[in-house]
Amino acid sequence: MAEIYKKETQLKDYSKDVLLDFYRTMVKIRKFDEHLIRLMQEGKVSGFYHSGIGSEGLSAGSIRNVLRDEDYIYYNHRGCNQKIAKGVPLSKIYGDFLGTTEGTTRGLGAGIVHSADPSRGVLGQAGTIGSQLGIGIGTAYASKFKGTDQVTVIYFGDGAASREMLHGSLNWAGLYNLPVIYICENNEYAISCHVSETHAVKEHIADWAYGYGISNCVVDGNDVLLMHEATKEAVERAKRGEGPTFIEAQTFRHRGHFEGDPYDYVDGELLKDWKENKDPIRNFVSRMLLDKIAEKQELKTIDQEVEQEILEAIEKAESAPQPEAGRIYEGLFA
């Protein structure tokens, strides 16, 4: 059965720059989302969006200071958390949502954005949920074939984990010992269904990996440092040629599946507990203040800088034009 990943993390083992980078990234992800929801409320963006608020630590910890531009990721379909952590410019992501030419897709795909930024190793998601579980194997195979030390990280949710594709993917990853890291963002709910209602597991989704001989663990995805350590070990394992790792990261979403979802299928007290006691940003701030890594004012300054960066990104994305209708025919064939 999957082990719970346990490690005593000490802030003093990290440089202040790294710690503040984690903080800044988490704040950026959250504020990005909050402003996007505001744009929806203003009628500028469609409501086909799945907020990633509440799970920022998972993406910041598993990407910042461990993955390089040349390492590939396939993001999951909740929030833009992984894209932001990987450094895709915010104006480009907002452009996708606003349908302007500033977007990575120049107007094609938003709502649920299917954008990509190959220069930063962001190879998109997939058309249907979980298809990235197959495509990611191809990327990992390609880097093995070419003899590079690139790793592929596939993000997906607990919902996607109920697709048959996961098992085909794990079989290949294990069989060919591929440099791939599965990060299952388990927020317990696939729209309205709890993971216990839709998955036949001993205890954890990560238990499945055991059957394929793949290293696995269950980690508190809302602890940014723990998430970072678990991913770092997986990346090092992949680079040493020791093959795939399956990380089940436990988290919870603060909002409904889509904007407008009443989210009434979740117990109110439980949600309150996650928001108040298990918030990844709030808990990290408490630790930094307690260990005197940073003063309140310093963190506030970062918040303001991020806010400014986001407002400028929205300004840039909004001031770009919508594509001409003729753009619809571009990109069909080479």
């Binding site: 469609s46 996708d96 349908g99 302007t100 897709t105 107007g107 094609l108 795909g109 938003a110 709502g111 919508q322 594509p323 001409e324 209708a325 753009r327 619809i328 025919y329 069909l332």
Partner: peptide
């Protein structure tokens, strides 16, 4: 074309 784009113009 393969699918319906998002931008209102398209």
């Amino acid at each position: 074309v393969p699918a319906m784009p998002y931008a209102p113009t398209m």
